[in-house]
Simulated assay, not measured.
Amino acid sequence: MTGQPPTGHPSAAALRSPALLRYLAGQLPSVTCSWAQVVALAWVVVQQDPHALGLVIMLQFLPTLVIGPWFGALADRYDRRRMLIIAESGLALVAAGYAIAAATGALTLPVIYLLAAAWGVINALDTPARRALVPMLVPADLAAAASALTGTAMLFGMTAGSALGGILVSTVGASATFAINAASFAADVVVLATIRTGPSPRVARAAGQVRAGLSYLWRAPLLRSTMITIALLATFGFTVQVSVPILVRVTFAGGPDLVGAAFTAGTAGSLAGMVAAAVRRAPGPPPLAPAAATLAGALLLTAVAPAVPVLLVGLAGAGFAWSVCIIAATATLQTADPAMTGRVMAIFAAVLLGGTAAGGPVAALLADLADPRAPFVVGSLAGVVGARLALAGGRLRRPA
């Protein structure tokens, strides 16, 4: 993408890109409906067996840890837009599978496990392709602003989708919620087909490209410390997709409407954090250490919440802090060599979602063996350790 040097706030300048606007127009409804599906699936699982939710989350995110870096190498070799179209089409099919199984009464735990694993494999392709495509939609000096804007749109969709999911499951049921999500993915594919970008880097295929990405990351001290901090926080700090539905149902005796409200509080907080970062005028990404410390405090408040209003405030604070952590990490990692961006972001996705995959069963086990509040206590401790790691990493120089 080329053009005249942008003027004004970077976010406003990035929004002048027709490619970015089309991308956001497709992603916003898709993310909204995807998070409605998150609520629907969580409720279906906790009704059958609350502790199975950890395994479902693991199956959804473990493939990103295992094969995500390889898919990241593919994102550096092939056309990123076409890869994203293929991935979004696959996610539409999985959502349709959920809808059909729910409508016919066949959505048992084994079927859910199968569909969750399929979703995880396709999402492992979707994530690096999407994150590597975004910088191509705007001039190079607006890549960070475009990343913040797409993150804001995603969190807005997550917030709206969490509320929408609670409403849809309570009114039209889980099957219709899954079907609506499938339709939203199909619509996004149509939008993506209309976007025109410059050519993808098309790094030539060669042996050891994934290893080269890992080696590059390890040799860059700031990138390395950022990745380790996020790994800790993702695994033990922000396990809300498992810990929140269990806490709501077991401790607060809530239904799908309260599960939706709890997710909405967290994602609304995340949206507020993303907006705050998007309008931030200070140079460079927001600092990671204070965000991790704030996450620790919010999770502790959630853990000791005596009533639903306090619970929602704690989750909103946790969402705010988590989004700032992700923004800080993403902005830092996007300073990588452009030829390495796909692999670095794929490793980031592997760490982020792989941490979620590992943390989900841990949170479920803690809730089972101790108390549904226990995962939030452990998460608070992880936030404290993460803040110290990030503070040490912040003193390191950025890679050249």
Rank of each mutant, 00 (worst) to 15 (best):
T341A: 15
D257Y: 12
V250A: 13
A272V: 14
A261C: 11
A276R: 11
A318Q: 00
A358Y: 05
G260M: 07
L299D: 03
A289C: 13
L301R: 05
G319N: 03
A331L: 15
L353G: 08
G254K: 04
G342R: 00
A339W: 13
R281P: 09
A277L: 11
F348Y: 15
A278P: 01
F252T: 03
V310R: 08
L258C: 09
A278H: 05
G317C: 12
L299H: 01
G354D: 00
T330R: 09
G254C: 10
A307Y: 12
P285Y: 00
R249Y: 12
C325T: 04
A282G: 12
I327M: 15
G355A: 05
A291P: 03
T251W: 10
V259E: 03
F348A: 10
F263H: 08
A350D: 02
A272Y: 00
G354A: 13
A272F: 05
A289Y: 08
A265I: 09
P286F: 02
T264K: 10
G254Q: 10
G284D: 09
Q334P: 05
P306G: 10
G319A: 06
P309A: 06
T341E: 14
T251C: 08
W322N: 03
P256L: 10
G273M: 02
V304Y: 06
T330I: 12
R343S: 00
A350W: 03
A318L: 08
A277V: 15
A277F: 07
G342W: 02
A321Q: 05
M340Q: 04
A261I: 13
L300T: 03
A318K: 03
G317I: 02
I347Y: 09
V259C: 07
L295Q: 00
I326W: 01
A307D: 15
P290G: 08
A331V: 15
G266W: 11
G260T: 04
G319R: 06
T251K: 14
S270I: 09
A276G: 13
